[in-house]
Simulated scan of single mutants.
Amino acid sequence: MSLRSALSTVVTRWRPVNPYALDTALASLVLFAVSLQWIFPDEGDDPLTWQGWLLGAATAVPLVWRRRAPCTTAWAVTAATPAQALYHAPPPDVMYGGMVVLYTLATVGRPWQRRMMLTGWVIGVVTTMQHQTDKEPFEYAFHLMGLVCAYALGMLARVQRAYTTELEDRARRLERERAADTARARAEERARIARDMHDILAHAVSLMVVQAEAGPVVVRKDPERAEATFDTIAATGRDAMTQLRRILGVLKEERPGDETGRRLPQPSVTALPGLVRRVQDSTGLRTELRTRGEPCPLSTDTEVAAYRVVQEALTNTVKHARASRAVVELDWAEDQVTLTVTDDGRGTSGQAGGHGLIGIRERAAACGGSAETGSGPDGGFRVVVRLPAAADREGALG
């Protein structure tokens, strides 16, 4: 295990502990360290007095408040340490309190506070030791290196804390963005499913209603045609059920090894001739498909949108327009396809309201296209939808 991993483990274990309890324990440890000269007196010439012990205790006790009042604690320790050194009964062997306050200010203090405190301690140590004739040169380096190392460790802790805070903030932002993206994707998927279900049900039910209304008339005059009419109703219902199962399948959890939903093809532009023929056979509406230009590759979503737009436009014609004829035009260009559905019915008043036209506009916008609806040039109603070609032509062709 690396040193960084070991320190992270220790910090993680101690983090739940009350910080003031830790500061009290730290102050007690420093007080014990400065009291070692009284606990284990040596044979040296340094005198030991109770006033000297009080000055030593003054460098340790303020550490209890180092988190609540770091600047005040630093000044208290800064005043007591040189007083103990000058009183010399005994002088401090190691400036434990000074190293702790420098570490604390480097971690939580403002820039001017920590820089001023470090400069003051370095100058104070050099000045104080100049008044003590029995000090060796290595003692200067020992005390100064101790202070500088404590300050450096505090700065490292400060940088590490800022880095950790930034990572946590970034993780929270990413989590919020991911949640927003998920909610947006769910809303878009619900809207897409709603549009598909509306298009399928509206188209199928419209054809079935037209056939059912004609059934009682032909059953008396032409039994064979009546039988064909009921077969058409059944076939339309079965086709609608198949498409609904495919759409509702995405709402269920995918089972391992179940590839049925993936194998079912989505409708595309190539299925439009069958759609036009089916509408004409089922309703008696004279429907014509016209194509101009060279077909360009479309993305899968655009292919589905093109089919659904024509399906919804023909459904509206059957339900609302009271038309006898409808023309579907595909005008291919290099970078887009224009779909136009025109009928000779009642015009705008016959198709106002409802969700069908809204769904057409939403489908076009979702693919980066546009939709226009309104009266045709010769009367009736016209739907014009422009859909862009695939951005990656080679990928779309492949």
Rank of each mutant, 00 (worst) to 15 (best):
G120Q: 00
V122S: 04
V122Y: 03
V122F: 05
V125H: 04
V125D: 07
V126A: 14
M129T: 04
M129W: 03
T133F: 06
D134G: 15
D134S: 14
P137I: 02
P137M: 02
F138V: 15
E139S: 07
E139D: 11
Y140C: 01
A141R: 04
H143S: 08
H143L: 14
M145A: 15
M145V: 15
V148Q: 04
V148C: 09
V148I: 13
C149I: 14
A150Y: 05
L156H: 00
R161M: 04
E166N: 07
E166W: 10
L167M: 14
E168K: 09
E168W: 02
R170L: 09
A171C: 13
R172D: 07
E175L: 08
E175M: 09
R176Q: 06
R178G: 15
A179M: 12
A179L: 14
A180V: 05
D181Y: 08
T182L: 11
T182W: 05
A185G: 08
A185N: 12
A187M: 13
A187G: 09
E188N: 14
I193G: 07
I193T: 13
A194D: 15
A194H: 13
A194Q: 13
A194K: 10
R195S: 05
R195A: 02
D196Q: 15
M197D: 01
I200N: 11
A202Q: 11
A204Y: 02
A204T: 06
V205C: 07
S206I: 00
L207H: 00
M208Y: 06
V209W: 00
A212F: 00
E213T: 01
A214I: 03
G215L: 14
G215M: 11
G215V: 05
P216L: 05
V217N: 01
D222I: 03
R225T: 06
E227S: 08
T229N: 05
F230V: 13
I233H: 02
A234C: 01
A235T: 06
G237Q: 01
G237S: 10
A240R: 00
T242Q: 11
R245C: 02
V250I: 09
K252T: 10
K252G: 11
E253H: 06
E253W: 03
P256G: 06
P256F: 06
T260C: 06
R262Y: 12
